[in-house]
Design a protein around this nucleic acid. Structure first.
Length: 756
DNA sequence: TCACAACTTCATAAC
DNA sequence: GAAGTTGTGA
């Protein structure tokens, strides 16, 4: 008991020792939240609560694993359930899914799998949308599920698809998933809710079992997760939720931070504990966070307090482009290590994954070891998905996505048409795919040659499954060897060496699973783990390497030194969020989360020119910089010595040179892409560090119909003038047929007399 | 049905 | 800059 309550503040202690009944812990960043939750679990156990009576839900499997080992460090080995919502639901559905028509070996479809079904459905419904919009269609289905709204309602927001069509696709999609005994990620939640609502007996059993529910990161629960929590807690009301509305960053996938406030209405007798003391960051770091988050209107005011020292003042780098930004970051890390620090002290955070490229390059050049957290998940790799498809097929032969995948690598002369015929046959005859394959010649549309191939594949499958479904590792090596996959890969894939390494890693992963689950392991459980492991769970952050990750991936973590890069309008806040106040506020929270990860030092960077989508654009400083401007020191590489940039008194050319620091060729591209641009929204003319006198002719105004000459493009005509925000955009048609839009203030055009 | 090439389109965050 | 789609011939 002494250990459990050691080193706790009075507020923390209050949360840890609160007894039965609803408890809301509103915990700011760095306030020792994880510690409180683990200690609370330990405390409950010490009070006689049994481990199997406790269910804790966290945000990632990794966090769940860490929490479990922290609890076990205090109370010894336990068998309580600590997992993510998705894993919890997957487990519940494995136990009771048959009540709603799913076998326990149902398959979990990831985004890619689900997209295949969606496009199959759209095609079946005669959609003319083609394959290109399938991602969007799939995400509308997901949004509908995540936000608990009818899919028809989304047609008003998204004009790409008609309401009727959306409904038809949705219905057919669900039907196809059922036929394949498969669920997508969202279904795990929806089906669990349905199970509880429609089968009170099952719920009763869980009520008898989960007397204590703890949910972490409550501000990021969506409607369905919220309801599942409420349903589970409805009997005993021993429900503690932990959250911080300011750290809600998943509204885009249905999270509702208001769930935190709602808790107090849902449970009127609820006790609320505020954890406000920050034990993580220096005063000057918290000041940055505080100044920015205050701009959010949709929030409850709270201030971050710490007794930590003032610390180093955060810095902001303003530079020309992503390369300089990256170089500066590399230098900063190198200097830190030179001064006796370690690489792992550093985390470089960015808004979008694509930003990692330039940073990686700079780190490589500077020989700084690094790890990317997140990114392309191991289990998303092609060769891994291929072999996993065999495993899934053995586990659930109705899984048509895996069926198609497995039969095509290596190719066996069985194509999409054949497999669908087979699947349809199996469904109408009410038999499994394996059985349907045994009667291949009866399947309409299947000829004798193909029937033979089917038979061959059938015996191959039976040979795998005939051995044993568990342990998994031997099954993996068996498939890789005897399916001919390895041989085929060596002959057809130039990257086969890397891929074989990855397959070896898959084998090792399976082996590890087999070893750690001698009693309770199964192929089904292994596959569920594989499906629900996020890229964050897989990454190894134990080595001494600098860490690179997105701001989202940094949630819940802390680092001695943090760099947040790309603080530009369009990047952070992201361009896709810039038009909505609510989304801007979420971007601001994202920035807030990033800043509050830092313990000792914080650096922000901002590049005023950045290439994205192979298109160069001039960017404005992020509004978040302005919101906290006096809380950091600025290193302005542009303003530092403006005259040196334009030594020969030149204008645009010199500026472009300095900005791009690249060859003439690139400059030509730049001219085409930027000064003459359609993407006016990216240009913040007031931010561009150029001499006023030379760029364009600011005083000049043009009229529609005027004949003009441009020094590079020759003669043309002003075809139209648009107003975009503060700027006027000229549409110019040149005599050679080339047409473009030019920002008026950059349009260095000579007006010709019409009569000449 | 399959392999390859050429082309097009796409790109926020992720369980 | 990558991944998917389409088109081609075998």
């Amino acid at each position: 008991m002494k250990d459990i309550l050691a080193d706790l503040t009075s507020a923390q202690r209050e949360a840890v020792t609160y007894g039965a009944g609803p408890l809301l812990i509103v915990a700011g960043p760095g306030s020792g939240k994880t510690r409180v939750v683990t200690r609370r679990i330990a405390y409950l156990l010490s009070q006689g609560v049994k481990p199997w009576q406790i269910t804790a839900v966290t945000f990632t499997n990794k966090a769940a694993g860490e929490m479990l080992s922290r609890v076990e460090a205090i109370v010894g080995k336990t068998n309580m359930w600590i997992s993510t919502f998705h894993s919890l639901c997957a487990k519940i559905l494995r136990m009771y899914g048959n009540a709603i028509g799913y076998p326990s070996s149902y398959t979990i479809y990831d985004e890619e799998d689900s997209k295949k079904i969606v496009s199959q459905c759209a095609e079946e419904l005669g959609s003319k949308a083609g394959k290109k919009n399938m991602s969007q269609l799939r995400s509308l289905i997901s949004t509908s599920k995540n936000k608990d709204i009818e899919i028809e309602a989304l047609a008003f927001h998204d004009r790409t698809f008609k309401a009727d069509f959306l409904r038809e696709v949705y219905t057919l999609y669900q039907q196809r998933l059922r036929e394949a005994f498969a669920m997508d990620f969202d279904d795990l939640l929806l089906n669990t809710r349905e199970l509880f609502v429609r089968h009170p007996k099952v719920l009763e059993e869980f009520h008898g079992r989960f007397n204590w529910l703890l949910v972490d990161e409550y501000q990021d629960t969506n409607s369905c997760q919220y309801q599942i929590s409420r349903i589970l807690a409805s009997k005993t009301r021993n429900f503690s939720a932990t959250g911080d509305p300011d750290q809600s960053i998943y509204a885009w996938r249905g999270a509702e931070m208001k769930n935190v406030f709602k808790f107090l209405k849902d449970y009127e007798s609820a006790k609320t504990v505020y954890l406000e003391d920050n034990f993580r960051s220096t005063k000057s770091i918290l000041q940055v966070a505080d100044c920015v988050i205050r701009y959010n209107e949709n929030r409850i005011d709270k201030k971050l307090v710490t007794s930590n020292p003032e610390g180093e003042k955060p810095v902001l780098l303003v530079c020309y482009g992503a390369d300089e930004e990256a170089e500066w970051i590399a230098e900063r890390i190198a200097a830190h290590v030179e001064a006796g620090g370690i690489y792992r002290d550093f985390a470089v955070l960015y808004r979008t994954s694509a930003q990692s490229r330039s940073i990686e390059n700079a780190l490589k050049r500077a020989v700084i070891p690094y790890t990317i957290i997140g990114g392309l998940a191991f289990f998303q790799r092609r060769e891994i998905k291929d072999i996993v498809a065999y495993l899934r097929l053995i586990d659930n032969p109705m899984d048509i996505v895996s069926f198609l995948r497995a039969t095509s690598v290596p190719p066996r002369g069985l194509g999409e048409k054949t497999i669908h015929r087979l699947h349809a046959f199996a469904r109408s005859a009410g038999v499994s795919m394996i059985e349907a394959m045994a009667h291949a010649e009866e399947v309409p549309g299947v000829g004798r040659t193909i029937a033979k191939k089917i038979e061959k594949f059938r015996s191959e499958l039976l040979a795998y499954a005939g051995v044993k479904k568990f342990p998994v590792a031997p099954l993996v090596s068996n498939i890789v060897e005897t399916s001919g996959y390895k041989k085929w890969m060596r002959e057809n894939d130039e990257d086969w060496i890397d891929r074989e390494d990855n397959l070896a890693e898959l084998h090792a992963f399976a082996l590890e699973y087999d070893m750690s689950h001698p009693e309770d392991g199964s192929l089904t459980d292994f596959l569920a783990n594989v499906a629900l492991l996020s890229s964050l769970d897989m990454s190894d952050d134990s080595a001494d390497r600098a860490l690179l990750m997105t701001l989202h991936a940094a949630k819940g973590l802390e680092f001695p030194c943090v760099v947040i890069c790309g603080l530009e309008e369009g990047q952070l806040p992201h361009a896709r969020s810039i038009n909505s106040l609510g989304e801007i506020e979420e971007e601001r929270r994202l920035f807030y989360v990033g800043v509050t990860r830092a313990k000792k030092t914080l650096a922000l960077t901002c590049a005023l020119g950045r290439t994205s989508y192979s298109d160069f654009g001039i960017r404005k400083k992020s509004r978040f910089i302005k919101e906290a401007e006096y809380t950091f020191d600025t290193i302005d590489m542009i303003a530092r010595d403006p005259d040196s940039l334009f030594s020969d008194g030149g204008g645009v050319e010199d500026y472009l040179d300095a900005l791009l620091k690249v060859s003439k060729k690139k400059r030509e591209e730049f001219k085409r892409h930027d000064v003459f641009t359609d993407e006016v929204s990216q240009i913040g003319a007031d931010e561009i560090p150029v001499r006023p006198r030379k760029i364009g002719d600011k005083g000049k105004t043009y009229k529609v119909g005027q004949l003009v000459t441009h020094k590079n493009f020759g003669s043309g005509k002003i075809a139209g003038i648009d107003t975009q925000g503060l700027y006027r955009v000229l549409k110019v048609e040149f005599d050679d047929g080339f047409a473009t839009s030019i920002l008026e203030q950059f349009a260095d055009l000579l007006v010709r007399d019409e009569n000449r």
